[in-house]
Amino acid sequence: MTKSSDGVFFLTGKDFTNAGSASSNLKGILDDMGIPADIVRRAAIAAFEAEMNAIIYAVAGMMRYSITPEAVTVTLQDMGPGIPDIDLAMKEGYSTAPDYIREMGFGSGMGLPNIKKNTDKLTINSVVGEGTTLEFVIYLQGLSPETSG
């Protein structure tokens, strides 16, 4: 039986030393709660992609998570340039990442499509010049709002 848990991690833009550690910590929390391994991996990968985006593109941000017996919900809110065209950003291969990001092994425009692939629900709200809020939900035990009533 999964208990509930929630919390928040703070992210600093361009802090590549710690980039990814929030998602890594979240993965540890999910593992400790006994959540099935494939769900933990999907949540960790989606969180990591979103965390990297906040750190690469924004000035600062935070990752909130909420784990209930029904679902894992993760919200990434950042203060940054925002995304002018979300449909375009969602396209595989679309990237505005600078060269030094590519040298680190990122910036191939796969992050947002990969978040979509690994989650059951994805919402992105963005205001140019202010920031981006990305939220995803992964349902546990194959439960979705429709089937669980």
């Binding site: 590549f16 030393t17 980039a19 990814g20 550690s21 998602s23 890594s24 993965k27 391994a37 991996r41 960790a44 990968i45 969180a47 990591f48 990297m52 680190m104 092994g105 990122f106």
Partner: peptide, 17 residues
């Protein structure tokens, strides 16, 4: 197997099992 050695490689490996 990789030629990159930055810390993100390890974090990527961690989240991707």
């Amino acid at each position: 197997i990789t030629g990159l050695t930055n810390v993100q490689v390890v974090r990527t490996a961690d989240v991707a099992d």
